[in-house]
């Protein structure tokens, strides 16, 4: 509480004069120009280039030629790629893999991450700070390092196999890294859990304890209070945390390459990564990237719509 008040005190110094009028004309524009130019050149133009390459064609010399003029856009590639995503198409398996792996990893993240976040936010007591620090470490540990660590443990002669053989669960070494879908899903969950838990933890921490006490006073049991009060309040934070990991997971190609390397576990990111890098199918790669980005924008707008609606419903 005191903290919040302190913040408010500073804010009250706000003056009524328009702060901008004091500066020379164009001062802020000049100050912002380099940054905006940067974003225009390196964010907007590249986004447009993806569209242009996707809508372009391949020359006789087997070079992709981007089409910059929207009036001549060639939708053929995009249509072809979409068609190949349908069952039986070239990308059907890849799309299925991507959707199931991402969904599976997300479910695991919720099942593991939510209890952890909840415990640390509400029940950890004196361990809270330590636990948060322990969560922050993997957050800032290179993703590739964390995969590398598992590769060592899951190797044929690694400690996981030796442990499982030692206690008699396995008779011989198991090939964890040999194209197993479930290993990819667990690895994704392992990789992205830190990015899931921290934002969730922050939101759960903000749930007012008095609400819980009130629920108990009203005679709801432990379980009742959890399901009637905490769970509904966790809905938006959970969706937010899922969004945080959904975006990078959809563009992931390194996890499955490292933990499997078999075409049997290829995701859409693998295809984008390979195709867009060059060769006569760069326009296919660009189309895949474009479709993925459009899908994510759609999902993101849904999330923004939902969160703005819930903000209106429950004043924070």
């Amino acid at each position: 509480m005191a903290e919040r008040l302190a913040g408010r005190e500073v804010k009250r110094l706000r003056s009524r004069r328009d702060p901008d009028s004091a500066y020379p004309r164009g001062f802020w524009h000049a100050l912002g120009a380099p940054g905006f130019a940067w974003f225009a050149f390196w964010v907007l133009v590249p986004a447009y280039t993806i569209v242009a390459v996707s809508m372009g064609y391949v020359s006789d010399s087997m070079l992709p030629v981007p089409e910059w003029d929207p009036r001549y856009w060639n939708l053929e590639t995009l249509r072809m790629v979409l068609g190949e995503m349908a069952p039986g198409g070239v990308f059907a398996k890849v799309v299925t893999n991507t959707v199931t792996y991402v969904a599976g990893a997300m479910v695991l993240c919720v099942l593991v991450g939510y209890p952890v976040a909840y415990y640390i936010a509400k029940q950890a007591g004196r361990w809270k700070v330590l636990l948060i620090v322990l969560l922050t470490i993997p957050f800032w540990t290179s993703y590739l390092m964390r995969m590398l660590a598992w590769i060592g443990l899951l190797a044929t002669d690694g400690y996981v196999n030796r442990l499982l053989m030692g206690v008699g669960i396995l008779d011989g070494p198991y090939g964890w890294l040999e194209g197993q879908s479930f290993v990819v899903v667990i690895s994704l969950a392992y990789g992205y859990l830190p990015y899931f838990i921290l934002p969730l933890l922050a939101s759960l921490d903000r749930i007012d304890d008095r609400l819980i006490d009130a629920a108990k006073d009203l005679g709801l049991g432990k379980a009742g209070a959890f399901f009637k009060v905490i769970l509904p309040l966790s809905k938006m934070p959970l969706i937010a945390a899922c969004t945080v990991i959904l975006l990078p997971m959809c563009g992931d190609f390194y996890t499955t390459t490292l933990m499997s390397g078999s075409p049997a576990t290829a995701m859409i990111g693998n295809q984008i990564q390979v195709l867009a890098q060059g060769g006569p199918q760069q326009n296919v790669g660009a189309s895949l990237a474009l479709l993925l980005q459009l899908t994510l924008i759609l999902l993101l707008s849904f999330y923004l719509y939902a969160s703005s609606k819930s903000n209106k419903a429950v004043p924070a």
């Binding site: 391949v58 006789d60 087997m62 190949e84 198409g89 070239v90 990308f91 059907a92 398996k93 890849v94 075409p263 049997a264 290829a266 693998n270 295809q271 390979v274 195709l275 060769g279 006569p280 199918q281 296919v284």
Partner: peptide, 19 residues
């Protein structure tokens, strides 16, 4: 040829996508 190259690339894409 260009057509041949495209056919090869498509075939390889099918392999890599396990299609």
């Amino acid at each position: 040829s260009k057509e041949g190259e495209t056919a090869w690339q498509n075939a390889w894409l099918a392999v890599k996508s396990n299609a």
